[in-house]
Every structure is written in C-alpha cells, then in structure tokens.
C-alpha cells in the first residue's frame, strides 16, 4: 500500500458517498445516469468475485464489500425507490456497446485465460468506459449540478491517483500491470475535459455548463 493508492481509494469512496448522499437527501436521481451505476455494479461484481477465493487484507475485503454494497444501493435508489425522478430521456447511452467490446477484448487480451482472470480483465476494461453514459448525459442536459460535478471530480481523481500508484510501484517494486495501466490511462483521459471545466468553472462557483 502507498499514499497514492490510499488517497485514490479514499477519493473513490468519497465519490460513492457523495452520490449516495445526494440521491438520498434530495430524494431524487435527476441528472444521474442509472446506466453508469449499473456498469459500476457490474465492474465491482466481476472484479470482486475473488472475495470468496483469496484474502488480501482486512482493508481490501472491507473496501470490496463497501463498493459492492454502495453500488447496488445506488442502483436500488435510482431504479426502485426514486424511479419517478429517473431521467429516462437523457440517460440513453447504449451500454451494450461498452459491455460487449470489453468482454471481447478481455477474451483476447488478458494475463491468463481462466474464468476469474478474464472476468477481472473485463472489469478493468469496462471500468475505463463506465462513466461515459454519465458524461454523455451531462453533455445532453448541457449542465450538471455542482454536487454531481464534485462526484465526477472525486471519481476521476481516484484512477488518476492510481496511475501515480502504478508509477510508484514500478519505481519501488518493479511491479506493473499493463492491462490495468492502459485502461486506467484511458479512464482518466476521458475525464480530462470535465476536469478542465471543473477547475475553471465549478471551483469559481459557476455552474458546470458543457457545450451541448
């Protein structure tokens, strides 16, 4: 464990808590892409199956349960409890165009061709594009509430911090995982224009307006 990965995990946890709290408090999921949340739940489910086969640390196990529980709780709030506030018209990204290519790529490019490894690889590829429905929705609505942009900033920062973690691990342990690194760079790059808007607008108290 290193400071980059720890702060990355905390940024990830904070993002999830911001979102869950916003939906719960406002009793509304307006402006939130349920499709992205479904993809995240799929990412955690396929990545954390090793919960039953291998034990890394209490921290690792605890965080995996937290990510799984909060992602399904978020989906429950969006599609069941506050489904009347779910914005079907703007959450229209075709997620099958993200799931199927990720699965195909995971079957072609992986470290080992076994069930858990291919699913882990699938979750890595899928996570790198899982935010697209949310970013697409924000671009369609042309704006995002500031709390949603804080959520996106924290979520985008988590994988950016993981990149620093991978650099640190390569420098200190000689350890690297190209699949995780390439996907993590793609994931972070997807947030770049949002980061720019967040820094230049939201932090100045303006609303996040995306060029529609």
């Amino acid at each position: 464990m290193n400071i980059f990965r720890l702060t990355g995990d905390l940024a990830h946890l904070i993002a999830i808590i911001i979102l869950l709290h916003k939906i719960w408090k406002s009793r509304s999921c307006a402006g939130i892409s349920g499709k992205s949340q479904v993809l995240f739940a799929l990412v955690y489910t396929t990545r954390y199956l090793d919960l039953v086969t291998s034990y890394v640390s209490i921290y690792n196990t605890f965080m995996k349960f937290v990510f799984l529980a909060t992602s399904y709780a978020t989906i429950y709030l969006i599609y069941v409890k506050f489904k009347a506030t779910y914005d079907h018209n703007h959450d229209t990204f075709r997620i099958e165009f993200l799931i199927l290519p990720s699965l195909a790529l995971a079957l072609l490019i992986n470290h080992y061709f076994n069930f858990l490894e291919v699913l882990w690889t699938f979750s890595i590829y899928l996570e790198s594009v899982a935010i697209l429905p949310q970013l697409f929705m924000v671009s369609k609505t042309g704006e995002a509430e500031s709390i949603t942009s804080h959520y996106l900033f924290a979520l985008g920062s988590y994988r950016a911090l993981y990149i620093l973690n991978w650099i640190y691990r390569y420098a200190t342990e000689g350890h690297y995982d190209l699949i995780a690194i390439v996907a993590g760079v793609v994931q972070t790059v997807l947030y770049c224009d949002f980061f720019y808007l967040y820094i230049t607008k939201v932090l100045k108290g303006k609303k996040l307006q995306l060029p529609a």
């Binding site: 470290h111 080992y112 690297y176």
Partner: peptide
C-alpha cells in the same frame, strides 16, 4: 511481471 499480485489492488 504480470497480473497476479495486482489483485491486491481494488
């Protein structure tokens, strides 16, 4: 080296 010990990451 490759994937195995990456699995200590979330």
């Amino acid at each position: 080296d490759t994937g195995t010990d990456t699995k200590d990451e979330l």
